[in-house]
Write a protein that binds this DNA or RNA. Sequence first.
DNA 1: AATGCGGACAACCGCCTTAAA
DNA 2: ATTTAAGGCGGTTGTCCGCAT
Length: 230
Amino acid sequence: MGRSPCCEKAHTNKGAWTKEEDDRLIAYIRAHGEGCWRSLPKAAGLLRCGKSCRLRWINYLRPDLKRGNFTEDEDEVIIKLHSLLGNKWSLIAARLPGRTDNEIKNYWNTHIRRKLLNRGVDPLTHKQLNESTARHVANAICCNGVNYEGNKEDSNYDIKNPNEFINKDDDDEMKKIPDLNLDLRISPPTEPIMSSSMNKRKSKSKNNGNGYDFLGLESGFLDFRSLEMK
DNA sequence: AATGCGGACAACCGCCTTAAA
DNA sequence: ATTTAAGGCGGTTGTCCGCAT
C-alpha cells in the first residue's frame, strides 16, 4: 500500500553538488521540465535523492534566480513581510521574484537581523528595543567577542528570548525586565517609516489618504490578497 | 606563513500536509 | 478509510573563504 520509495538511500550521494551533477540536472529539466522528483534522479542518471535534486534546482540552478546582493528595496520588503508573516520564508520569497526561501532565510539570519538590531529593533517582534536593551544587544553583537547566544558571563541578552533580558548594569541583582508587550499585530504603523526608496514608490502610488500606502497594497507592489495562506 | 575566528551560504534534517495506492 | 511516501517548509549544520593576529 502507499507509494513506492523516492530513492534507494543506500546508493545516493550527499554533500556538495559537482559540476557534472548540476549539468545533468539542468539538461534533464530543460528536456523534460520540472515534474516528478521521485523518478528524476534515475532518469537523469543522478545518484541523488529526489528531494536533494528539487532543492538544488529550486535554490541554485533555476534560470530565473537573481543571485547577487540584495537591494535596499528588497531589504525593506523582507523586513516588512517578516513583520507580517514571521518566518514564513516561502511566502516572503513568493513576493520577491528571483529570490528563494532559503536565500532569504540565510540573508535574514546573516544580515537583516543584525541590521534591525543596529536600528534598535527587535528582529523577532519588530518592536523598538528599549535603549538599555539595545545597548546590550549592540555590545553582545560587536564587542568583547561576545556572541548573542549569551555564552559569556556579561552578555545578558539572549536574542532568542528578548523577554529574558537581564539588566545587570542598572542593578546588581539580576532582574528581568517585566513584560515587554511583544504581541504582534497586523496593522499599519502609526506613522510612515519608509526608506527613501520606498518613499519614492509611495509617492507615485495611490494611498489611503494619509500619504501612506501600507506595504504597497494599493500600488500593487504587494498585493496581500494574493498571498497564499496555509 | 600559519593559525584562529567569524561570516556567508549551500545542503541536510526532520516535521507536517497532501495525495496516491 | 487507511497507509505510506512525495512534496514542501523551516530550522540547523557543515564547509568554505576572507580577514586579523
